[in-house]
Every structure is written in C-alpha cells, then in structure tokens.
C-alpha cells in the first residue's frame, strides 16, 4: 500500500565560525583609467555563485554594469586573504568587505566629481555620476575614473571585514557565539510504499530567511541543491564501514540522488535583514539542506506512524520499522 504524509523541519544556523574562531573577509577594488573595474579577493567560488554576487555588490556601489567588473579570486600571491568558503559566511563577510572597498573608492571619486560638477547631491548609477537635483550636471563613470587618476587620487581601496566573535564560556557554553543566524523551515510530502519500504519524496516547499537575496535565482539554486543533498542524507546515502574499512567505494554502491529521485522544489525567500551583512544579506548554503532530512523523517512518521531514529531511512530500515509496528499492533489486538 502507498501512504502519503506531510512533515516539517526547521532550523537555525550560526553564520560564520563563531566562538572566537577568526572570521574575516577582504577585498581590493581598483578602478582602471577607462572606468573598468578590477576586484581582488582571496574568497573561493566553487560553484555556489559568490563571484557573481560580488560583482553585483561592486556594480551596485559604483553604479556600473556588473559585466564591467573583472574579478580575480583565490590566489595567495595576488589577492588578499578573505578566509575560507565555508560556514555560509561568504556573502555575509566578504560580501560586506566588497561593499566597503567599493564605497571607499566611490567616495574618493565623489570628491573629484563634486569638484568637477560643482554639485553635492551626486549619485552613481548606470555608468554615470549625476546630480539628483540637476541631472544635466553629470559625468560618465569612465571620464570620472580618468579624472580621478589625473588628480593623483587613490583609485584603489582594500577593505577588511571582521566578524570574529567572543568564545562562549567553557563551563556554561554561554555567550554571543555567532555574529548572526540564518533561519529556515521546509515541508516535505512523501509517499511510502509500505510493502517495500521505498519512499518517494513528492514535494518540498522551502522557506529561508537569507536577510537579503542579492541574486534570488542563485538563492533558489542553493536551496534546490541543498534539498537534493538533504534528501540523499535522509533516504539512502551511507558510507558503510566495517572495522574501519569503507565497503562502498563506487558511485553505484554509494548512491546520491539522480534526476529521477528529486521532486519539484518550491522556494520561498524571506528577507529579515542582518545588520552586519551587505544590504542585510546572510548565508544560505548550509541552511539549504539542514531542514530537509527532518522534514522527510517527520513526513514518514505522518504517513505510516513509524519514527526513524537511525539514518538513513533506506528500504531495509523503513520496512523493518513498519513490520515491527504491524507486529506490535497485532500483539495489542
């Protein structure tokens, strides 16, 4: 028989390293004479999309097209140390360093522009710098860049962002462990085949507080990928170890979800701004997967009334629990 169930999982996640571990981000912004932009940062994009988000932040602050920005990252000789890509900290920490560095360069350029245009209410947008009250008073970003160079002003700025917290008390664990937290809840709908223990995850609805979605599609992409990983964690993935020896050493024996195992994933983005994050943004990378397994486990319990307490909820484990329950029910009746 196939039985359906619904379940929810929630989580909170301390962004960054927390409890006194060094937690820094850095970026250097340099404006070329023609107004094109070079940004250097030691931060790593291994696919999650931080390079794009950095370009968006710089573009926002300088009022230029994000495609104008050349980003050089993760090279210990040419970029400033921005800490690792982990702990869902990259947008929150190095994103903020990007914002600070761009702001610093822009403020130097603003001084030059104020002098040239004789106006104070300047805005940087669409590759232009113009007076908000008298838009006809304007200069292109490229010409302003040239002017700033000629004026002998600095067109380079390096910014540092440090969110290192204090450690918690060693005896009580009390203290401000993290700079900020991400929050999320997900609902899963499953169908359990009670005759085989096979589970289909039919739907996942995810709601994540990311502070501010700098690139909403990228946030969705993080959530969708996280859910798939969480699904594998809940149902099937397991390194089998016998007396210290890994037994499953191929991808046919260690099975991650395929395209036919992952359901439609619906994402909802919540934005409760984080004070220290750029535009209020904080991380989503890890929070994306954390609620999935619990939501699935709770949905299984809702569907068939058994609670999996030892992961994964694979065919054998679930089938055994269902049979134990049937036997218990028989004993009672």
């Amino acid at each position: 028989m196939k039985k359906r169930g619904i379940g929810i999982g929630s989580m909170f996640y301390g962004i960054g390293y927390g409890f006194s571990r060094q937690d820094i981000g850095a970026a250097t912004v340099e404006i070329c004479e023609d107004g094109s932009v070079i940004v250097r940062s030691g931060e790593v994009d291994y696919g999650q999309g931080s390079d794009t988000i950095f370009c968006q932040i710089i573009a926002e602050e300088l009022g230029v097209d994000y495609a104008e920005i050349k980003l050089i990252t993760a090279d210990t000789l040419t970029t400033p140390n921005a800490g690792p890509t982990s702990a869902s900290r990259v947008t929150y920490v190095t994103g903020k360093a990007m914002m600070k560095a761009a702001t610093e360069v822009r403020e130097t350029m603003r001084e030059v522009a104020e002098e040239k245009l004789g106006m104070q209410d300047l805005m940087f947008a669409n590759g232009q710098v113009f007076s908000m009250s008298h838009p006809e008073k304007n200069i292109s970003f490229a010409r302003l860049a040239k002017a700033t160079h000629l004026a002998g002003r600095s067109v380079v700025a390096t910014a540092w962002q440090d969110i290192t917290t204090k450690d918690v008390d060693p005896e009580t664990g009390q203290g401000d462990a993290y700079s900020t937290y991400a929050w999320a809840s997900q609902i899963a709908v499953v169908e359990v085949d009670t005759e085989t223990g096979k589970i289909e995850v039919l739907r996942v609805v995810a709601a994540h507080d990311v502070g501010k979605a700098i690139n909403p599609k990228n946030v969705e992409a993080q959530i969708e990928g996280g859910v798939a990983t969480g699904l594998g964690y809940a149902l099937e993935e397991q390194i089998l170890i016998n007396k210290g020896i890994v037994q499953n050493t191929t991808l046919s024996e260690y099975m991650v979800p395929t395209s036919m195992d992952v359901p439609v994933i619906e994402s909802h983005i919540v934005e409760v701004p984080a004070l220290e994050g750029p535009y209020g943004a904080k991380g989503v990378g890890e929070p994306a997967l954390i609620p999935t397994a619990p939501a699935i486990l709770n949905a299984i319990a809702n569907a068939v009334g058994v609670r999996v307490t030892a992961l994964p909820a694979n065919l054998e484990n679930l089938h055994r629990l269902i049979r134990e329950q049937e036997n218990n029910n028989k004993d009672k009746s």
């Binding site: 929810i8 929630s10 909170f12 918690v168 009580t172 664990g173 009390q174 203290g175 401000d176 462990a177 993290y178 900020t180 937290y181 991400a182 929050w183 999320a184 809840s185 997900q186 609902i187 609805v205 709601a207 994540h208 507080d209 502070g211 619906e266 909802h268 919540v270 409760v272 701004p273 984080a274 004070l275 994050g277 209020g280 904080k282």
Partner: peptide, 23 residues
C-alpha cells in the same frame, strides 16, 4: 537562544513558518 545570546536582529524563523502555513 541556547548559548544565552539575545536575539536582537534578523530573526526570521517565524516568517518562514508563517509562509509555509499560508502555503
């Protein structure tokens, strides 16, 4: 929270639950 840290900013758990409730 568990470490005695006071929630003073960016506390989004209720909004995520509220959205799912509406869904």
């Amino acid at each position: 929270n568990a470490t005695g840290q006071k929630c003073d900013e960016s506390v989004g758990i209720k909004p995520t639950l509220e959205i799912l409730r509406q869904v």
